[in-house]
């Protein structure tokens, strides 16, 4: 799947300015960005619900920019799932096959196979969406999108309406079904952890453009801009540059790469603790170092009280230099 210079402008949806993206066959790609950045608009254009002002959408090297949604052979899971409330789970999954006029024996067979794959129990298959739990509804929506064997699966914030326990479970299921079917997948999300945990590739969007594409690890550890650095997780960004490089750039160091009163790590500075928060698995300590504040993520057994002085140092090889023009 390939997007070429997609532009969009309409008063009821965020603007897109020249978005290009290449999605390798079989890959799981996340479109990650804050709300209002245009990620949902982009997915609607790929699905065919919106027409771009300029640019092309290519699927297997065929231009589908002007093909209506039902003829693109794409599957979509909507943010609110959009399950048909008057049809059973089976009826929902069968809908796309019935619209294609397939013989009923084949429909039955494919629907049951698909529902097996997403793990919906047989006694739940005749229930209407209103009588299914959130997780079960999610499975039905996923099955409905996949049973038509789409060349591209789109997920629009699929997990945003679930509680955190169910979200972890569904995350695994979606990724597993995606691997089993090998369908190229594009997921829209605003949750960086979800994007990093699930995707092969992440495209970070901001204000109608894709600012950076890469693997989760690359984007988290070596982002090219302060925006990406901050959006993917807590970040300490301080002015400065590596000796010998162009001055005027800034340095990124993640809180978990800093150590309080550590032994055997290079000295960085002495500062005063102004706040510390306990999160169970770790603690987050705010330290004033000179004229900047830094966050340090430490082990929960070391929890300095506010007002005490501590020594903060960085683990070797964890400081990343942000390009000078990367600020956004």
């Amino acid at each position: 799947m390939r997007l070429e210079e997609i532009s969009f402008r309409f008063d009821t949806a965020p603007t897109l300015a020249g978005v290009s993206l290449k999605v390798p066959a079989g890959a799981f790609v996340s479109i990650l960005g804050p709300s209002g950045c245009g990620k949902t608009t982009l997915v609607k254009i790929v699905a065919g619900y919106l027409k771009p002002l300029a640019g092309r959408v290519l699927l297997h090297d065929t231009d589908i920019t002007n093909v209506p949604p039902g003829k693109r052979n794409t599957g979509m899971v909507f943010q609110n799932l959009a399950l048909f409330p008057h049809l059973s789970a089976r009826g929902n999954v069968a809908f796309g096959l019935e619209a294609r006029g397939l013989p009923s024996s084949e429909i039955h067979q494919r629907v049951e196979a698909m529902l097996d794959q997403v793990g919906l129990k047989p006694d739940e298959r005749n229930r209407q969406p209103g009588n299914l739990s959130g997780g079960q509804q999610q499975r039905v929506a996923l099955a409905r999108a996949l049973v038509i064997q789409p060349s591209l699966l789109m997920l629009d914030e699929p997990l945003s309406n679930l509680d955190s326990h169910l979200r972890d479970q569904m995350r695994g299921l979606i990724r597993q079904v995606q691997r089993d079917t090998g369908v190229t997948t594009m997921m829209v999300t605003h949750d960086p952890e979800e994007a990093m945990a699930m995707s092969d590739l992440i495209a970070v969007m901001n204000q109608g453009t894709i600012v950076e594409v890469g693997t989760g690890r690359d984007l988290y550890q070596r982002p090219r801009s302060a925006f990406v650095a901050r959006f993917l997780g807590l970040a300490n960004i301080v002015d400065g540059s590596v000796i010998g490089h162009r001055p005027g750039s800034s340095l990124l160091v993640r809180p978990e790469c800093l150590v309080i009163n550590g032994e055997g790590v290079p000295f960085a500075g002495i500062g005063k603790v102004i706040n510390s928060e306990f999160f169970g698995a770790d603690v987050l300590v705010t330290v004033v170092l000179g004229n900047t504040q830094v966050l340090v993520r430490g082990r929960p057994n070391i929890m300095p009280q506010p007002g005490t002085e501590v020594r903060v140092s960085a683990m070797p090889g964890t400081i990343h230099e942000l390009p000078a023009d990367g600020e956004s």
Binding site: P68, P69, G70, G75, F78, A82, F84, F95, G96, A99
Partner: peptide, 17 residues
Amino acid sequence: DPHLVPAARGLGASRWQ
């Protein structure tokens, strides 16, 4: 639900369907 019609159209249903 305003998403039902796009969902059905995306699954290949015609306007009459």
